[in-house]
């Protein structure tokens, strides 16, 4: 039998995040294979009501504390370290999200255990657990093992089904009393996304552009296509970071999640951070010069060609249709 596995439940603004259930689902399967107990921990302010949704775990440890409104990575790592030591935990799963960024490395440092980032799959082979991580934006995968299955693992969002982590079962909840460390980091306020001129989450048709568009001057061509189709233009992160389009047009992990009837992409590679925000679109058509671009893996139709050839041809065909 293996020592317990612990999932750090992630929540933001009073709601549990999907990643919590994705991790719980994956950890449940692993715990059953290794015959290990599955624990989950919820730290925060007014978080006690969230515990009722965590029945997939064998035990839920909750710490409700006024100072934990938005715990910084050092405070969260401090609490986890104590809990891991108290409960004899061997493996800790933490969300690979912006919200939880930084907790994993700090915890691994303090526990002197290895840290695995970008974990997308977990499997057991002859009693040893193998973690598959993505490297290079998902272009390469790597298998790693942890000595004695001990370590801290950051789980990449969208890698596991969230449904497997949900249950109506009433969890066994234990209030834990851990000292909350002082921190120099003060959370001031949330900054809500600016409305922007167009709400891309409400559009039926989105034309998406990526780094392949090369320069802001080329966006006019894309806008022409969007007009011809009655849709709006959105983009991957590099286009936004270059200042070519406003932040309100960003699709993906740190941008918007969209679900239009049609999502056409031009020069977007399909990095997991982008795909996370658009994979559920009704119809996905992608144009990319690279036949192995991961975007083709989530598209219904693909065109392996230069977007600068396809764009004008397509506008022409629509106009004459």
């Amino acid at each position: 039998m293996q020592e317990p596995i612990l999932v750090l439940a992630e929540h933001l603004k009073g709601e549990l995040a999907d990643i919590t259930f994705e991790m719980l689902g994956a950890a449940r399967k692993l715990a059953d294979q290794l015959k290990a107990p599955l624990y989950t921990a919820v730290f925060g302010k007014d978080v006690a009501p969230l515990t009722s949704q965590l029945g997939v775990a064998d035990s839920v440890f909750v710490l409700d504390h006024p100072q934990l409104d938005m715990p910084s990575a050092d405070v969260a790592a401090g609490l986890l370290k104590k809990l891991v030591e108290q409960k004899g935990v061997s493996l800790v799963l933490i969300g690979g999200t912006n919200v939880s960024a930084g907790i994993g490395p700090r915890l691994s440092f303090r526990l002197n255990l290895p840290f695995v980032n970008f974990c997308r799959n977990i499997r057991v082979e002859n009693g040893s657990t193998i973690f598959t991580s993505q490297l290079f934006g998902g272009k390469i995968l790597s298998d790693v093992r942890l000595p004695e299955n001990r370590g801290v693992v950051s789980v990449y969002p969208g890698s596991f089904a969230a449904d497997a982590g949900r249950s109506d079962k009433k969890p066994s909840v234990e209030k834990v009393d851990l000292p909350v460390e002082e921190t120099k980091i003060v959370f001031k306020r949330y900054i809500e996304p600016e409305a922007g001129d167009i709400d891309i989450t409400k559009q039926d048709i989105l034309i998406s552009i990526g780094r392949g568009i090369v320069s802001a001057d080329n966006i006019a061509m894309v806008e022409e296509l969007a007009r011809a189709l009655g849709g709006a233009v959105c983009a991957s992160r590099p286009v936004i970071d270059q200042g070519w389009l406003p932040l309100s047009r960003q699709v993906g992990k740190s941008g918007m999640t969209v679900k239009p009837k049609l999502y056409m992409s031009f020069g977007v590679s399909g990095a997991p951070e982008h795909v996370e925000g658009m994979k559920d679109a009704g119809l996905i058509i992608s144009v990319n010069t690279d036949p192995n671009a991961p975007i083709f893996g989530v598209s219904h139709y693909g065109v392996c060609a230069d977007l600068f050839d396809v764009l004008p041809a397509l506008v022409e065909k629509i106009k004459t249709h």
Binding site: K139, I284, N292, F296, K317
Partner: peptide, 30 residues
């Protein structure tokens, strides 16, 4: 960490590729 192996992800291969010149592919999209 010690890496067991690196490998390339299997192409999900979901997309149906539209062949031909840009005009043909565009006509098919329309």
């Amino acid at each position: 960490l010690s890496i067991d192996r690196l490998f390339t992800p299997e192409a999900a291969g979901k997309a149906e590729m539209l062949e031909g010149a840009p005009e043909e592919a565009s006509a098919r999209i329309v």
